[in-house]
Amino acid sequence: MGAERALQGRSLVNASDLGLEEYESLFALAESIGRDPPAYAEACRGKILATLFYEPSTRTRLSFEAAMLRLGGQVLSVADPGTSSVAKGESLADSIRTVAGYADLIVLRHPKEGAAQLAAHYSPVPVINAGDGAREHPTQTLTDLYTIRTFKGRLRDLTVAVCGDLRYGRTVHSLLRGLRRYPGIRFFLISPEELRIPEPLRDELAADGIPLTEMPEMEAALPQADVLYMTRVQKERFFNEEDYLRLRDFYILTPERLGLLKEDGIVLHPLPRVTEIAYAVDADPRAVYFQQARLGMYVRMALIAAVLGVI
């Protein structure tokens, strides 16, 4: 119970701000919340969470708001501060300090890199980063790790295949950085040549001695994968449409390809899905992406409760 006490009053800006023990205590709390949600239905009574989203991300905002409501707290939502009077022409530092006067906790989404760090610096109440540009989205990482832990029972000794846009996908970068802290992790990185992971990240992983295989197709990786993490390959990432059309199909999880996946492997996706996972895959028990969304809410409940010090 010690580690979650240590989170009280703290902001979460980067996924790496928390140690593995703190992750574990959040996961344990999320697990006990998931087992018996009504037991926590009053935990945040009288507390207010403000969601300040400078760019739309309905899914993330809903997850945080649902988490707070399920803890018995209340939610103040500034859905579009860019056009509302709260922040018209106002500096981020001033908006944050104003909202901090109303709320016990701020969840911030902002298109600029480092925005959450700036907010945390000025805010007298804790700030949770719900995405700052291409940089960080730590509660997505918590969600992904918690999902893996839930279905695989561990976060070590895993072969993780990540497929799709590995170059620009913030979610993927955080996941790789999150997992590299656990022993016995091995990666298969499946992407078109144009969308391979950025060199600094590859160097980082290599420096840790993490076995890593880059490949243009998923077939060879699937029989060994404990986890298959799918992401979207966006058309805008390619120089021309022909390349996109030529490559797109390699990165779609079809029932045939799913047949190659390890018997007890699981399929994750940060959602929303477009075409990269065929609907026919959804019925397979290894497809856990909608459960992943629900687990994300539980882990956000755990984080909110720990940061507010109510548990």
Binding site: P111, K112, E113, G114, Q117, L118, A134
Partner: peptide, 15 residues
């Protein structure tokens, strides 16, 4: 020099 950096629009903070 990163145009996506928060300090590019919030000029009151020095990185």
């Amino acid at each position: 020099r990163n145009p996506r950096c928060i300090t590019s629009t919030e000029g009151y903070v020095a990185p």
